[in-house]
Amino acid sequence: MTIHNLYIFDKYGTLLHYGEWNRIKQSGITKEEEAKLMYGMLFSIKSFVNKISPTDSKDGFLYYKTNKYALHYYETPSGIRFVINTDTASTSVKEFLQQYYSKVWVEYVVKNPLWNGAPVTSDLFKQKSDEFIKQSVMFA
């Protein structure tokens, strides 16, 4: 199993953080362009899923899978969006993202008095984030 990359967006679609581990194929466009495309697609999927759903769903869009990878989406009530690409065999990624949110994001970004809502520059956060991902069972 493996983790490919991770995007964190705020509620306005700004890319706050990007992390990459095992990504073999690059998109060939800049990170900024790629983030915009990614956010746009997620925005569309979310509204599509909500419109087309036969019943009122609580969670909305959770993930999609191709035969090569799976994209998992987790959105907090405050609108921070976590997007992680893994291989198709990974399980309970949602729980993992929730843990990541409370143990890494809240601790080292939200509680950092110098963070003002802009893309994260803290080295401590980047280090803790990398450690957390690498320690997960999915990463191995």
Binding site: E107, N112, P113, L114, S122, L124, Q127
Partner: peptide, 16 residues
């Protein structure tokens, strides 16, 4: 603790 674990942001340390 949540700020840094090295010399990044050291210039802000006196405030805290």
């Amino acid at each position: 603790n949540n700020l840094s674990n090295g010399s990044q942001y050291l210039e802000y340390a006196p405030k805290f």
